[in-house]
Design a binder for these strands. Structure first.
Lengths: 142, 142
DNA sequence: TTGCTCCTCACGTCACGTGAGGTGGC
DNA sequence: TTGCTCCTCACGTCACGTGAGGTGGC
């Protein structure tokens, strides 16, 4: 895994946002921009692209505000911190704790997705209804 | 159909927005605030509630901007204008034209809903995948 | 008459968009 | 060396939020 670095424009293009959005998210604490000499270029790796993708999807598909994203991100952060310990210290009890902490987070996201789907389905049903009535009327006039 | 008038606060509460949002939409031309003495209360009827509900759903569930809503609304407007003529002039050829103009509008909305559903399903699938892997790992450590 | 909701400015905020002016790496 | 992308302010914008101060209807 060579992990050659990506520039902010590449990351932005791949995720479908602008560099400005990435800088703003960093400013809000959603993305690590961490240790960097003032004025020097931000550098990213594949893991950052995946992470940003997820945030953007939570924003677009579920309509979460950045404040809500920060909450979720902090939970993920805690998980990531645990993951680091995972690498260094392969204690089975700790591994279990890490996995068990991760599960409810994903379940929560799934619950939000289900709720959205339900609302979309209701909307789709109403539109189908409307369309059916229109077709019926057209046929009456046919 | 008595059509007793509703006040802005009632409409807002029923649709789940604030009065400010309604005033702003009126300002942007999405809602009729029409003929009203300066300073007098805005009055609405059931049809306005239905209309606003639809706009809010298009905004929340599909993530449309107000500018995009205006486009859609203008199309609906044209339809509403035709509907008025419908009431007064029951000419069968015109009726057909009205119905046939309405159908593609609803179909367009349905297409947008389908697209959203697809994206949500993809997201749900990825989350299920993630959850499955977490469960498997937990069981391995069990 | 007393509340409550309404009204119109008008400034504040969130999530970025958009130049302005300048530095840095293939 | 020439572009291109990057950098940091900093002001603009969209979709409202939030008082400020005042009028109007059960």
């Amino acid at each position: 895994m060579s992990a050659r670095p990506l520039r902010i424009g590449d990351v932005a293009a791949r995720v479908g946002v602008t560099p400005r959005t990435i800088r703003y998210y960093e400013e809000r604490g959603l993305l690590a921009g961490g240790d960097r000499a003032k004025g020097s270029h931000r550098m990213y790796e594949e893991a950052d692209v995946v992470r940003l993708q997820e945030l953007i999807r939570l924003r677009d598909l579920l309509g979460l505000s950045l404040e809500e994203l920060v909450e979720l991100a902090e939970a993920e952060e805690a998980r990531a911190a645990l993951r680091d310990r995972w690498e260094s210290d392969p204690n089975d009890e700790e591994r279990r704790a890490i996995v068990e902490a991760a599960i409810p987070l994903v379940e929560r996201q799934l619950a939000l997705v289900s709720l959205r789907r339900q609302k979309l389905d209701e909307f789709a049903a109403e539109l189908q209804d409307k369309l059916g009535r229109l077709h019926a009327r057209r046929d009456e006039l046919g």
